[in-house]
Computed example of a mutant assay.
Amino acid sequence: MYQKKIPEVLDCGIAVAVKVIGGKWKAWIIDCIRRGVARPSAIHREMEVVNPRIINLHLKELEEMGIVYKEIFAEVPARVEYRLTTVGRSLLPVINVLEQWGNENKEYVNGHHAEYILGNN
């Protein structure tokens, strides 16, 4: 089994939050589920720019952390949907703030920030 050379320290609240929603896609996955996009195939369509294998990996990690749970319906073929747990729902204000910040600063982040770099902010 692989062991990290530097042990993970989760005494800091920011480190815990980043572990849960860090990376490129986890916050987007949580947002999809919040909006009712619950089936893996629907999440894949919603996030078409992301490799489905990566989405599935993140879903598994979120499930292992207790942020989402997988509901399996006894149908043929089996139907799977993801739901937010209570802890997962408690992340929604954080996701909302991240979304708001991103919307307010997307032009800057997308490279239209020469005036800021030059100190004309």
Results as ranks from 00 to 15, higher is better:
residue 63 E to P: 03
residue 44 H to G: 05
residue 51 N to K: 03
residue 95 I to F: 00
residue 94 V to M: 07
residue 13 G to P: 04
residue 61 E to N: 15
residue 90 S to W: 10
residue 101 W to V: 15
residue 78 A to G: 06
residue 116 Y to H: 09
residue 116 Y to R: 12
residue 63 E to W: 00
residue 16 V to Q: 03
residue 7 P to C: 09
residue 32 C to K: 09
residue 80 V to D: 02
residue 90 S to A: 15
residue 62 L to T: 07
residue 50 V to Q: 10
residue 74 A to Q: 04
residue 45 R to H: 12
residue 39 R to P: 00
residue 19 K to M: 02
residue 29 I to W: 08
residue 66 G to W: 08
residue 84 L to R: 12
residue 108 Y to F: 15
residue 54 I to G: 00
residue 13 G to L: 06
residue 41 S to V: 03
residue 81 E to H: 00
residue 10 L to Y: 04
residue 98 L to M: 06
residue 57 L to F: 07
residue 35 R to K: 15
residue 101 W to E: 10
residue 12 C to M: 01
residue 43 I to V: 15
residue 57 L to Y: 06
residue 79 R to G: 02
residue 89 R to I: 02
residue 49 V to N: 13
residue 70 K to E: 15
residue 110 N to S: 15
residue 69 Y to D: 05
residue 105 N to P: 09
residue 43 I to G: 03
residue 43 I to L: 12
residue 103 N to P: 01
residue 33 I to E: 06
residue 59 L to F: 09
residue 44 H to N: 12
residue 2 Y to P: 15
residue 26 K to W: 01
residue 94 V to Y: 00
residue 15 A to M: 01
residue 79 R to Y: 01
residue 118 L to S: 05
residue 8 E to A: 04
residue 48 E to G: 14
residue 117 I to Y: 00
residue 20 V to N: 08
residue 63 E to V: 02
residue 114 A to N: 04
residue 77 P to E: 00
residue 26 K to A: 05
residue 113 H to K: 09
residue 98 L to W: 07
residue 47 M to K: 13
residue 99 E to S: 13
residue 3 Q to T: 10
residue 11 D to W: 06
residue 41 S to A: 10
residue 92 L to W: 00
residue 34 R to P: 10
residue 18 V to K: 11
residue 55 I to T: 04
residue 42 A to S: 15
residue 84 L to A: 09
residue 120 N to H: 10
residue 82 Y to L: 06
residue 72 I to Q: 09
residue 33 I to K: 11
residue 6 I to H: 08
residue 15 A to I: 05
residue 92 L to M: 04
residue 32 C to M: 05
residue 56 N to W: 08
residue 3 Q to H: 06
residue 112 H to K: 13
